[in-house]
């Protein structure tokens, strides 16, 4: 299992949730994972119901089985100041740079420097060792930018190494790229069984592969339960209205005769079944597309309630069952 797990996905597919569940799943007995956020949205804090995360590694949950999950919201500005401090021992000069807008420049405008700092910090956590010489974190899970930007984000170090031909940034960029392109890293894409996210997933995988970045798995999120099977879906189209009315009536839902309580339920219920059937067909089409990607596909169920810690644990167990950890 790769030590750096990057989780991307189209907006709205729940990649933050999946990243968090994965971090929990990977924190098995006595293991420690770090969940990192790079987009400054505080999605992890919201998910775990904690206050905004500082730029500091902090324990946020105990995993089922006793492992620990730490979280870190990487802030590009702070990472740059750290970096300057580390290499140049800049105290007040760092502050002066900030005053002049140089930090702002470097982190927002300078091509990709921001992304270099973010990926760099994550890779540093991957490689960090404790006093005994063992890795501090067994796994680092990154809640990464969305599918449309992921390749550029991860590959930015290559571009940066090309732009900055010498100097510490160049060296740093190359070191980061060595981790990102190695089997130590796996990039997972989260999708829904809908056309656009699936298409974007397929495009994203092609881009990642072209850039030589290691693609991990496809995780289908929010999979709805199968309520009607194939035979029932066939029957929906042909079943006589009156037969359903009789069945509803016999189940205690009122009169099955024309205009009766049960009878008036038939049309709306069959309409809902027709919607279900239509969606089911579309989902099957999307499954077929995903099947062609030649990657392991995992599935996470749609939970009945808004996502909270209980839901996260449930998803984490599901991921473990599917062998993701």
């Amino acid at each position: 299992m790769s030590r750096l797990q990057v989780v991307s996905g189209k907006g709205g597919t729940g990649k933050t949730t999946v990243a968090a569940a994965l971090a929990l799943a990977l924190a098995g007995e006595g293991k420690r994972t770090l969940l990192v956020e790079v987009e400054g949205r505080q999605g992890i804090a919201q998910l775990f119901g904690t206050e905004a995360l500082p730029y500091e590694e902090r324990k946020i949950a105990t995993a089922p089985g006793g492992g620990e999950v730490y979280a870190l919201a990487i802030d590009a500005e702070q990472a740059l100041l750290d970096y300057l401090q580390m290499f140049y021992k800049l105290g007040s000069a760092g502050r002066a740079l900030r005053k002049l807008g140089a930090i702002d420049f470097a982190t927002t405008i300078a091509p990709g420097l921001r992304d270099v700092l973010l990926t760099g910090k994550a890779c540093e956590a991957v490689r960090r060792k404790d006093k005994k010489g063992e890795f501090l974190y067994d796994h680092v899970v990154m809640d990464a930018p969305p599918t449309g930007r992921i390749t550029r984000f991860l590959n930015v170090n290559d571009e940066m190494a090309g732009l900055a031909k010498i100097g510490p940034i160049h060296t740093q960029a190359q070191a980061v790229m060595r981790v990102l392109k190695s089997p130590e890293t796996a990039v997972h894409l989260v999708t829904l069984l809908e056309e656009m996210p699936v298409q974007e997933t397929a495009d994203g995988i092609a881009e990642l592969r072209a850039a030589g970045l290691p693609v991990g798995r496809v995780i289908v999120n929010m999979v709805r339960p199968e309520v009607l099977d194939a035979a029932e879906l066939d029957l929906v189209r042909t079943v006589p209205h009156t037969a359903v009315a009789r069945a509803l009536s016999s189940a205690g839902l009122g009169g099955g005769q024309r205009g009766g309580h049960a009878e008036r339920l038939v049309d709306p219920l069959l309409a809902q079944a027709a919607e279900y059937a239509e969606r089911h067909t579309l989902e099957q089409e999307q499954r077929a597309v995903l099947g062609e990607l030649d990657l392991p596909v995992d599935q996470l169920p749609l939970l009945a309630e808004d996502m909270d810690l209980t839901g996260l644990y449930e998803l984490a167990l599901e991921l473990r069952k599917q062998g993701l950890s």
């Binding site: 029932e232 079943v239 359903v244 509803l248 079944a273």
Partner: peptide
């Protein structure tokens, strides 16, 4: 009637 009953049960669960 079984298939219809089962289908109807499915319709109700869907609902």
């Amino acid at each position: 009637d079984r298939p219809v009953d089962e289908l109807t049960a499915g319709l109700l669960r869907l609902h």
